[in-house]
Simulated assay, not measured.
Amino acid sequence: MDSSPVQSAFVLHSRPYRESSALVDFFTPQGRLRAVLRGARGKAGTLARPFVPLDVEFRGRGELKSVARLEANGPSHWLEGNALFGGMYLNELLIRLLPAEDAQAALFEHYLQTLPALAAKRPLEPLLRSFEWRLLSELGYGFALDRDVSDQPIAPSGLYRLVPDTGLEPVGQFQPGLFNGAELLAMAEADWSIPGALAAAKRLMRQALAPHLGGRPLVSRELFMNMKEPKRD
């Protein structure tokens, strides 16, 4: 079998496979790769956890590869509480939306920068919105936040609805699920000091992602919604 060059990688998800192996989804600059990790109950299995930066060598030409070598290339990003569920959410988005073996170097770099920000307990919602937006853009599903579908500037006092994969369409009168122009312009600048902008961004990203998730709910989102922050002494 052919071997690939050693790649930087993170584990997105793993599950038992046959007697002592694991079936692992990796995120690499070359995209999402699925591979069999043999001896998963040994040392290699302790490394095959999410949020651990890895060097991985894959073998095989087919879609299902095998792991030839697996080593840590840095300390694990320790996520807990809200940050842990945020990291699980990002991983689930990548598994659900990334095509297999579709190179995503820029998105991988963004993920690489997001994990330490999560570990440092930076405000969660802006990090998630930024990653969702980058994911949509890199997959070709992005749209302008400062111009409408007719390429007209977003009016701060205007009302708009999202047409998925197309853009923002002006609407003459109020309807449920609309976005006001001031919120959209704040999103375009990532200015979360504008009242309501962060909540509107969450709603917008949910609408934008929905057509690509196939109607199946995200497990991590449901867990996150049911989770309460641990009490601190």
Rank of each mutant, 00 (worst) to 15 (best):
L54K: 01
D55I: 01
V56I: 04
F58C: 02
E63K: 13
S66L: 13
S66M: 11
V67G: 00
N73Y: 03
P75D: 10
H77F: 05
W78K: 11
E80I: 06
A83R: 04
F85T: 11
G87F: 05
G87N: 09
N91K: 06
N91M: 01
L93D: 01
R96Q: 04
L98K: 10
L107R: 12
F108N: 09
E109Q: 13
Y111F: 14
L112A: 14
Q113I: 07
Q113Y: 14
A117R: 15
A120M: 01
K121Y: 06
R122I: 04
R122S: 05
P123N: 12
P123E: 12
L124N: 03
L127M: 07
S130G: 15
L136V: 09
S137P: 08
E138D: 10
Y141E: 04
S150I: 02
S150H: 10
D151F: 10
Q152C: 08
Q152H: 12
I154T: 02
S157W: 02
L162F: 02
L162T: 00
P164M: 08
T166R: 15
E169P: 00
V171Y: 03
Q173N: 11
P176G: 06
F179P: 02
N180G: 05
A182G: 01
E183K: 00
L185H: 07
A188S: 08
A190M: 14
A190Y: 06
D191R: 04
D191Y: 07
